[in-house]
């Protein structure tokens, strides 16, 4: 064993921690090396001094202070933790979020309401335009050379809730002057719906004087009897006197006269 090795193992040697083989080797070296002997002696002396020093024990006052301090610190800690907990639920932020959500919803609702009313207005406008368009189209179509189209135009008036004077006049025009019986018949039917209108009544009375088609005569008599138009009596009387009037029309006129009188 060499000197530097011995040096490292002095403390374990002195405390008896080395195994026997190392102890023997250590003793052999110590027997031959004065320097190491001295070192071992010195270390032993130092250890003895260490053992002599008593462990320091804190006084009761220090101990009490410490516990007090600890308690204080503990309570302080709890308080801070509590404060932290309240801080963890962010009321302010929640209010902010709630407010922004509320504003968003309100904005959406307002927007859709605005848009809704705007849409309603637009739809109403479009409807009006469509009616106007239909009316214009109908008026234009009434002059179509195709009879079927003219009848279609007359039928369109059924879709117009409150036709203006122009439409009524166009229909009355058809009733008096259209060359085709079927168009005149359709006009009678369309006009029959405006039983309150004086113009329409006048037109029917005029038609009764001029019309020669039995179908139309019967439809016109029916209308005038339904609305209790006393002015129709004279033209009906004329129909009865007329030799060209078919008998079945005369029957109708007779019935009508009886009802009106």
């Amino acid at each position: 064993m060499k000197c530097n090795e011995v040096e490292n193992k002095i403390i374990p040697f002195l405390e008896g921690d080395l195994d026997t083989q190392q102890e023997i080797a250590m003793k052999e070296h110590l027997a031959s090396c004065e320097q190491c002997q001295r070192q071992v002696a010195e270390t032993q002396q130092m250890l003895e001094v260490f053992n002599e020093v008593e462990d320091a024990v804190p006084s009761d006052r220090v101990r009490g202070n410490f516990i007090e301090f600890l308690e204080e610190e503990k309570s302080l800690q709890r308080y801070t933790i509590g404060r932290k907990e309240t801080k963890e639920f962010p009321w302010k932020m929640a209010f902010q979020i709630a407010a922004s959500v509320l504003i968003l919803i309100a904005g959406y609702a307002w927007g859709s309401f605005q848009k809704g009313s705007e849409n309603d207005a637009q739809i109403a406008e479009l409807r009006l335009e469509a009616t106007q368009l239909k009316q214009d189209m109908m008026l234009a179509m009434l002059d179509n050379r195709s009879v079927s189209k003219r009848i279609q135009a007359v039928n369109y008036t059924e879709d117009i809730a409150a036709p203006d004077e122009e439409v009524l006049e166009a229909l009355i025009d058809r009733l008096h002057f259209d060359g085709n019986v079927n168009v005149r018949l359709a006009a009678v039917e369309a006009l029959s719906r405006y039983s309150e209108n004086e113009k329409v009544k006048d037109a029917f009375i005029k038609s009764l004087t001029n019309e020669t088609n039995p179908n139309i005569q019967i439809a016109v008599i029916q209308f005038l009897v339904d609305v209790q138009e006393k002015r129709a009596l004279a033209p009906m009387q004329k129909l009865l006197e007329h030799t060209e009037t078919p008998n079945f029309v005369k029957d109708r006129a007779n019935e009508g006269i009886i009802t009106l009188m």
Binding site: S146, S148, I151, A186, P214, N215
Partner: peptide, 10 residues
């Protein structure tokens, strides 16, 4: 496309 209208008196 367009109406059909057929009429006869008797």
């Amino acid at each position: 496309s367009a109406p059909i209208s057929i009429s006869s008196s008797t």
